[in-house]
Amino acid sequence: MTSTPVVVRETTADAPRMARSRLLTLGLFCLLLALSLASLGFGAAPLSWAEVLGGLFGLGSEQHRLIVTEIRLPRVLLAWLLGAALGMSGAALQGLLRNPLAEPGLLGISSSAGLGAVLALYCGLTALSIWALPVSAMMAALLATLLLYGLTRGGASNLTLILAGIALSSLAGALTSLALNLAPNPASLQDIVLWLLGSIADRSLADVRLVLPFVLLGLGLLLAAAPALTLLSLGEGEASSLGVHLSRVRALIIGGSALSVGACVSVTGTIGFVGLVVPHLLRGLVGHRPGALLLPSAIGGAVLVLAADLLIRLLDTPRELMLGVVTALVGAPFFMALVLKSRGGML
């Protein structure tokens, strides 16, 4: 029970831990850059590395520039944005709900954005403007977020939030099925189904520009909640007693997830499991601190999406596989393994 403050710096493992956390972020970022380069260099038109880099920085021929910046770059950038949005939202929601099985899909944001897109396809609005689909999807995501916020306003518990999310996503799912059911012709049915499967192929820089501000704003909101997330390890009562504003934290995380994921889904279609898997793989590496998990999860998400997309192109199947299908095929068994493991003990 001594109160003499001896030198603690040697005895606490603070410094190496921080270094490890940063090293992880840095390592993931390098991996992301490498995958991005690979993704830029790989495609139907065989380009040398010099031609790829030349095209990227506008030094080479006009043809190379077009191939790299108009066809390959949007795909890479969308993978970054989508992966970051899904990864960080997943990490933040798992921290907020203190439940390792939470993910953005749980709140019903993705399925609502999907519904908005399907309605645009169903009504033929897509023929009017290329903006019709993403704008419609984003409006639906926004509407869903407001509905979710209204349902859980005023100190509702986490259970209420989860239940509201499930209700919302079932409703969106049911309406999407209805649209499929009533689809006027096989062509629009195929459009809808293909869009629902999720993909980042054949998108343009205009799509990236549309999504970018929302994703950045959303990620900013989520990062602002980072310290509070770590404090929530203590439970809501003690966290609140230390100065955490619970309803504000909840609003930040719901709003941030909805903005970033809603915006991405409006362009890429629904892509699942990334938000669930990535925080899980990285959690142990940051010492299980929910606040420290956000940034690595964002980068890790981008890595996973980009890797999955690259895999799709390398596999060279007769019809290109859809990204959402691949992430679900990898993600679902992972989820089952997680359930089995969580039966065995804490997390």
Partner: peptide
Amino acid sequence: YLSQENQVQWPIRVEELVEL
């Protein structure tokens, strides 16, 4: 304030817990 539930939600280390 020390609450009644003797639980910590994530397996962080004792030192990190106390730092909070």
